[in-house]
Amino acid sequence: MDPRPRSFYILAAVFVLFLIFLYGPTLTIAILSFQGPQGGLTFPMRGVSLHWFSDLFEEQAVGDIWGSFRRSFALGLLVMVTTVVVSVMGGLAFRKRFAGSTVLFYLIVTSLVIPSILISLGVGLIFSQVGLKVHWATSGFGAQLTWTLPFGLLIMFAVFNRFDRAYEEAARDLGASPWQTVRHVVLPIIAPSLIGVALFGFTLSYDEFARTLLTAGSYNTLPLEIFGMTTNVTTPVIFALGTLTTVFSFAVIGVFFLVLWLSGRRRARQGTDAGKGMV
């Protein structure tokens, strides 16, 4: 291999600085969440303890964070499943032009670029004028979908742009019905991307703030609860919460990548020897 040019080392240094910039603050609050009981929001550390983590389990110190965590988790799963199903159907639909497909495409783009507060405000207004109560599982759920679906669909568009239709032609030639072709040929091929869509669906919902703000009703989701804490909590307990939920996010991301890796291995093992020249 050629020796690396000087620009490589300069750019590598920039890249490392970027990573420090990206992760540094999160690491800082992770460290500070282990502050001793007398410690404050900044350095120096006054001892090391789990005091602020144990505070998280006391209702009066932090409010209903476990309830909000459960709601966020349930909502995340709900949004995830819906995003995967609707994105796959939408992706399949967009493989051929149909009347109205251009309008629908621009609606997807609009959904992505519209300021979140408009969704929050608009959905909130509709529910109040119709006389429905806003609730995280109805209005909040729908409002979050306007954020997760565009990402899911963009991934599906990218996937189907690269999809080799010869596989489907082959299935059809062998007498598969359209449904069988989708079920046994298309879906298995695009399965890894679906794990990606699911990851987007869950995490974007779990962390969503602006679109849920006016649509969650009287029961907060976790990001709303955390934001509420920023205005009235002035102890490291908020760092402890931040650390815990970031660790949780990392765990979720890790699980998705593990599933991706395992399914890749399973495919490699179960793959037939077709096309490998063995008779």
Binding site: A93, F94, R97, A99, I114, V123, T146
Partner: peptide, 28 residues
């Protein structure tokens, strides 16, 4: 029929966007 298949597959997406994107904008 190929339009119909497209519409059927796109229906859930269209529904979500109609109720939670278009209607809110109209309402605002």
């Amino acid at each position: 029929s190929h339009h119909a298949a497209g519409w059927l597959l796109a229906a859930p997406l269209a529904l979500v966007l109609a109720v939670f994107l278009v209607l809110p904008i109209v309402m605002i």
